[in-house]
């Protein structure tokens, strides 16, 4: 066996180990953020969305038609926001060079999962404003949750989306039309989509670069 063949094999083994380590690191990161539990909760919320439609929780033409779906979307969003909390605190910051990438990937994957699962919750039932509004509302509120996480910390990141959901409930009752309350606008309203997208981008950038705030309380 020539030395070049040995070197080749060694390089391949190193590469495989690196891949294995990368996958393991990703998995450990996801587990530390309790992503499997988050996905299970989102799936449960999607089921509630479906059952709610069948029980006429949001049928008719009142404000409730939009309020209930928005609250369930907010439920999925708070799960994403709270999942940003690191159980390791500053220790992780000192060692994790790949951390921003992992945070970005986790947040994007969870947001996509929330949209997908909630969309799956619409199967066989009618959701007012459809999937486009669902995606817009979920993305926008996720942005709020991520911004809150960078300000208050991952554990308290739910406060922002819950406050926004409560304000949206009021806005829907009062027939507000501001694009900042995107859920109150039609699904393809450009201003509302831009606002929600901007907030989402800001939230994702902040959580990627800065991460959730580490507080003593946590």
């Amino acid at each position: 066996m020539s030395s070049s063949t040995l070197n080749e094999r060694s390089a391949l083994r190193d590469q495989a180990q690196r891949h294995g380590l990368g996958a393991r690191l990703t998995w450990l990161h996801l587990v530390s953020r309790q992503v499997p539990a988050a996905l299970a909760i989102m799936a449960a919320l999607a089921v509630v969305l479906n059952i709610g439609a069948r029980l006429n929780w949001y049928s008719g033409d009142g404000a409730l038609v939009q309020q209930v779906p928005v609250l369930l979307e907010a439920g999925a969003v708070v799960v994403i926001a709270v999942s940003t909390r690191s159980p390791f605190g500053e220790v992780e910051l000192a060692n994790g060079r790949l951390l921003p990438g992992l945070r970005l990937g986790t947040v994007l994957a969870l947001t996509a999962a929330a949209m997908g699962l909630m969309a799956a919750g619409m199967i066989g039932v009618h959701l007012p404003d459809g999937g486009a509004a669902l995606a817009r509302n979920t993305a926008g509120m996720t942005g709020i949750g991520l911004i809150t996480a960078t300000i208050l910390g991952g554990a308290m990141a739910w406060v922002g989306p819950v406050a926004y959901a409560a304000i949206t409930e009021y806005a829907l009752s009062a027939s507000w039309q501001s694009p900042l309350i995107w859920a109150a606008r039609p699904p393809h309203d450009r201003g509302a989509v831009l606002c929600a997208a901007a907030v989402f981008v800001v939230g994702v950038v902040l959580i990627t670069v800065r991460g959730p705030r580490n507080t003593v309380r946590e």
Partner: peptide
């Protein structure tokens, strides 16, 4: 960690649903 936000959302949902 998920119990806290879910409790908050559940309470809001209950209050809105019982309103209408």
């Amino acid at each position: 960690r998920f119990a806290v936000p879910l409790v908050a959302i559940a309470v809001l949902l209950i209050l809105v649903l019982t309103q209408y």
